[in-house]
Design a protein around this nucleic acid. Sequence first.
DNA 1: CCGAAACTAGACTCATTAGTCCAGAAACTC
DNA 2: GAGTTTCTGGACTAATGAGTCTAGTTTCGG
Lengths: 216, 216
Amino acid sequence: MSESFESSTARKHRAILEAAEALFLREGYLGTSMDELAERSGVSKQTVYKHFGSKKVLFVELVTSMTAGASDNLGELDRIPDDEADLAPYFMQYAMDEMRIVMTPRLLRLRRLVIGEVSRFPELAQALFENGPQQSIQSLANIIAKLVQRGLLTAPNPAAAATTLNWLVLAAPINETMLLGDDAIPTIAAMKAHAAEATRVFLTAYASDTGRDDLR
Amino acid sequence: MSESFESSTARKHRAILEAAEALFLREGYLGTSMDELAERSGVSKQTVYKHFGSKKVLFVELVTSMTAGASDNLGELDRIPDDEADLAPYFMQYAMDEMRIVMTPRLLRLRRLVIGEVSRFPELAQALFENGPQQSIQSLANIIAKLVQRGLLTAPNPAAAATTLNWLVLAAPINETMLLGDDAIPTIAAMKAHAAEATRVFLTAYASDTGRDDLR
DNA sequence: CCGAAACTAGACTCATTAGTCCAGAAACTC
DNA sequence: GAGTTTCTGGACTAATGAGTCTAGTTTCGG
């Protein structure tokens, strides 16, 4: 009773996935043993194999599920600014949101794991790419296209502009943290400074210089 | 005779390192077996252990040596432009050089390997970071500082500007290739287009607008 | 409360691993 | 060419891996 309407079976299923997440993220695919996994799940080895047919299946299932929900609710398509003055705060907010989502130990470890297994599981890496960067860039491109329509930005190729902004924001922190470990995750203050600079560079390069155009 | 003055011992040493490179880059640390490595080296297992004390030692030694020579001769400090018109071609060339060095299967696989082993070998990842991105950015910062002195760029913080340019150039291709595999390495033509856009964005954001300043 | 399904503990198979040991062969040094 | 170092190949240890099997126990739906 209490708050759990989960069947015992479902509970075990979840426990296995939780243990798998902890172990795979920490020890890698080959470094994780099914015995340890079963023990940590509080479940017998046989049960693990009943729920997931093999180590590979479990791994793929886990990573796929973690990957899928990765880049949700970003880039609120509502309230896209229609005034030039709102551009900087808008992209500032966008950058902060994106960093807050991506720069978490969980997602960073997932990324390390998947990158390390590219040759063994190329599908997983591709899925992570499509659900992560590619999706962010796509939705960002839509926003930029709208802003071009409104005459607030000048970007002949919105997808390219979106790629530029995406990596202006994420590249430095993500690549640093990939190699230096989770302790290198920037503080909120550092993220703000970085977001401000990224926004400034982006807007300098892509803003429609209507003001200056008028003077010509 | 012929061209090799290498002693038999030295030749074997090199053969082991070559096999280690091939295997570790392809199979990862745990995925590489010392038996296979000895066989591939054309050397007995015992010899492997005489030359390198253990699997760990061999791995660390290999990765360290590959890491060390990674980011050589980049950013020729001579002939830094002193005319505004030379800025774009100069950074264009810089970007192409940097991509050509980094975007090779060998270095990309090394990067994947090291990222995947961050929790097992944090020193190696740190070394790769310091010898790679950090060093590039540092030498780039020196160039930028000089250009600021000459009045060609405006960058209150040259290190930040260097970081921005570095990732403007490398982030998109490197992160894509990390996940999509070596087949995703961009063609020279694609690199040129990317380098041009990166250079444009960078110069728009950091060039000294002496022209416009005069108009004020 | 009964029968089926899910689960348990632990033994078991078979393959593989890092690293050691040994007796003889080959390669260098003087 | 004698003596020393290096190397070979294969046997060996001790551990660990994924996955299976079994016999008994728990859980759950009807």
